[in-house]
Design a protein around this nucleic acid. Structure first.
Ligand SMILES: Nc1nc2c(ncn2[C@H]2C[C@H](O)[C@@H](COP(=O)(O)OP(=O)(O)OP(=O)(O)O)O2)c(=O)[nH]1
Ligand SMILES: [Mn+2]
Length: 450
DNA sequence: GTTTATGGCCAC
DNA sequence: AAACGTGGCCATAAAC
């Protein structure tokens, strides 16, 4: 009843594991996913002094903001969305705290929302709204500072958190991280780094004089989408070396790719994946703040350009309707429960999941095969550096002094050349890995490769 | 006083 | 009766 199939789907998965025996998808799981979750138990080293300093700064910022806001809105609990609706409506009568107005075709209750997108849309109506947004951001990031206290383990002079990496949680066969989750740490921004509020800066090397590095697959799911669908235009784009995220961001704003900042490129990413995974004009127009016809035009242009991918989408959907599961290139499956109708929201959601699951899942497989190879080399060559974490399409290493450059070679060699053939998959496009490095997870600079 | 649900938001 | 997908976590509100 949770939309993920419940018992029936679980039973079918069990049957599959029994029937699959030593098939390649099972091998992949056993030799790669299960191993990674065991091997990445080194923990992540924490700078406790930085943690304490961050905590102090967040408390101060929050106290200041809380005072300013409650002076205007009254003595409410700012962490309560419900109280915020009441206070904001009183103070700013013109405010519209709904995500979007729908028909209200009968005496349905109005659904209020104070989420970020809504507050940003309404922010021009009163200066206090921006303050609330700032409070929210600080409060959310504070939890990355104080929330890890219960997970800290001392090892001699050093402090660690030992996240649990599991490969048996997600329906698409991605890895998950918990207790603490290290896959959703807030990215460092210039503004917050300047204020010394960068939460990733508390993650450091465990070695005296050591460094951290992160190797991230470039535009990974777009590449996998191109490979899986064999779409000509998409393949061409990558063979030409295009950065599709950047190109789209530049095109949407009518600026040159030179002027695309990291933040702008990130917005382009979100748009790309929105459209790739069956997003509608309605949601796109909300996200871009443009009209619905404009959004429709953009989606139409996407499918006009990538009709090969559209055909692949239709094929996935047809397969899902017929068999109630989809299967990826690596032979991994996601099962569905029969919806009442394929045209209702419930059914349409399944069809989008049918398009997404094989791509997200195989992107994960490709990454993890490469990571496993890198870990094997670090062990075989008796290096002291540690590959201690994965964030879906990236790997983090803690570099022993003097080993960094060689570790970078390993990361690039292995992650750009995962041996997928052993699991029956031929990658028809090259992969590209971007490497960053620095003294902390929150202060890394891109490696310039000649 | 516990539990569970919800709203919200971070990442990829 | 919604409107890219995959996760985990926290504080409040509601229910036990
Ligand atoms: N459906 C969906 N998938 C996402 C979204 N953000 C990230 N992903 C998936 C697809 C990405 O290829 C993958 C890795 O995320 P990254 O941030 O590394 O993006 P990507 O590799 O595409 O670009 P990059 O060149 O690394 O900046 O995670 C999103 O908003 N929606
Ligand atoms: Mn990436």
């Amino acid at each position: 009843g949770d939309g993920y199939g419940g018992f029936e789907v679980f039973r079918r998965q069990l049957e599959e594991i029994e029937a699959q025996g030593l098939q390649s998808a099972f091998q992949l799981h056993k030799e790669t996913y299960a191993q990674l979750s065991i091997l990445m138990n080194n923990g992540s080293c924490l700078d406790l002094a930085e943690n304490a300093a961050l905590g102090e700064r967040y408390i101060n910022h929050l106290a200041q903001l809380s005072g300013e806001i409650r002076a205007v809105l009254g003595p409410i609990n700012l962490n309560s969305a419900k109280q915020l609706v009441g206070a904001l409506t009183r103070k700013v009568p013109s405010i519209t705290l709904t995500e979007y107005q729908w028909k209200k075709w009968d005496d349905e209750e109005e659904k209020f929302s104070t989420k970020k997108a809504v507050l940003m849309r309404e922010a021009h109506k009163h200066p206090i709204i921006a303050k609330v947004l700032e409070y929210r951001r600080r409060e959310t990031l504070r939890r990355f500072v104080t929330g890890i206290h219960k997970h800290v383990r001392k090892r001699g002079k050093l402090a660690f958190v030992e996240t649990s990496i599991r490969g048996d949680v997600t329906v698409t066969h991605r890895m998950s991280s918990s207790k603490p989750n290290l896959q959703n740490l807030a990215r460092d921004t210039e503004e917050e780094s300047a204020l010394q509020l960068n939460v990733k800066s508390q993650y450091i090397s465990r070695f005296l004089g050591g460094t951290l590095s992160e190797a991230d697959e470039s535009q990974l799911e777009l590449r996998i989408a191109a490979i899986a669908s064999s779409d000509g235009a998409m393949m061409d784009a990558f063979l030409r070396g295009t950065d599709v995220h950047t190109e789209l961001a530049a095109m949407m704003r009518g600026i040159s790719t030179k002027h695309v900042t990291e933040a702008i490129r990130q917005a382009g990413k979100t748009t790309n994946f929105h459209v790739l995974y069956g997003g509608a004009a309605f949601g796109l127009s909300l996200r871009l703040g443009c009209s619905k016809p404009e959004a429709e035009g953009m989606i139409a242009q996407f499918y006009a350009t990538f009709h090969g991918f559209e055909a692949w989408q239709r094929a996935q959907e047809a397969f899902a309707k017929k068999h109630l599961y989809v299967e990826s290139m690596f032979g991994r499956r996601r099962h569905f429960v029969q919806p009442r109708s394929w045209k209702a929201p419930e059914g349409k959601r399944i069809l989008r999941q049918a398009v997404n699951a094989p791509i997200q899942g195989d992107a994960s497989a490709v990454t993890n095969i490469g990571i496993k190879q890198a870990m094997d080399r670090i062990e075989k060559e008796r290096l002291q550096s540690k590959l201690f974490m994965t964030v879906h399409d990236s790997a983090l290493t803690d570099n022993y002094p003097g080993e960094r450059e060689y570790i970078h070679d390993i990361l690039r060699d292995e992650m750009e050349h995962p041996n997928t053939e052993q699991f029956g998959v031929k990658l028809t496009l090259p992969l590209q890995v971007d490497i960053k490095t620095g003294p902390t997870w929150g202060s890394m600079s891109k490696l310039v490769t000649a």
